[in-house]
Simulated scan of single mutants.
Amino acid sequence: MLISNMEILPGKEVKTHLGLVQGSSVRAKHVGRDIMAGLKNIFGGELKGYTELLQESRDEAMERMKQQAESIGANAILNVRFSTSSVAQGAAEIYVYGSAVILE
């Protein structure tokens, strides 16, 4: 499955546009990560626990989008975009979406 944030790909032609595909993941903060984040707020530095949490969420959302595209027969997803939102105290959603297509 080819996944790109570009609308068109040089040397490739969109044969069929199959529509919007999407994936999301909602994750809550972990108490242990909150403690380390509190210390980092005092001393400074990267919040690695949160970085890992967001990377896991992005990976999961991308995989869900990819599965949806495969289920409708796409071989590529173009114009991919990410969005985030807070859904509850201490929980955030990563949302990814794009256009499922068949490329020649």
Rank of each mutant, 00 (worst) to 15 (best):
G44W: 05
G44V: 00
G44D: 07
G44I: 01
G45D: 04
E46Q: 11
E46M: 08
E46T: 15
E46H: 09
L47A: 14
L47Q: 14
K48C: 02
K48F: 08
K48M: 07
G49V: 04
G49F: 04
Y50I: 04
Y50M: 06
T51H: 07
E52R: 05
L53W: 10
L53P: 01
L53D: 08
L54M: 11
L54C: 02
L54T: 05
L54E: 04
Q55V: 07
Q55Y: 07
E56M: 09
E56I: 06
E56L: 08
E56P: 00
S57V: 03
S57W: 03
R58D: 08
R58L: 09
D59M: 07
D59Q: 09
D59Y: 04
M62R: 14
M62N: 11
E63C: 02
E63Y: 06
E63S: 08
R64Q: 13
R64W: 09
R64Y: 12
R64N: 12
M65V: 11
M65Q: 10
K66L: 13
K66E: 14
K66G: 09
Q67I: 15
Q67M: 13
Q67L: 13
Q67F: 15
Q68I: 15
Q68A: 15
A69M: 12
E70G: 09
I72D: 06
I72T: 11
I72Q: 10
I72Y: 09
I72K: 10
I72W: 12
I72P: 07
G73F: 02
G73S: 01
A74N: 11
A74F: 12
A74W: 11
A74G: 10
N75P: 05
N75G: 06
N75S: 05
A76T: 10
A76V: 09
A76N: 10
A76Q: 08
A76I: 10
L78F: 06
L78T: 04
N79E: 10
N79F: 12
V80C: 01
V80K: 01
R81V: 07
R81D: 07
R81W: 04
F82A: 00
F82I: 01
S83E: 07
S83D: 05
T84Y: 11
T84S: 13
S85F: 00
S86V: 05
S86D: 00
S86G: 00
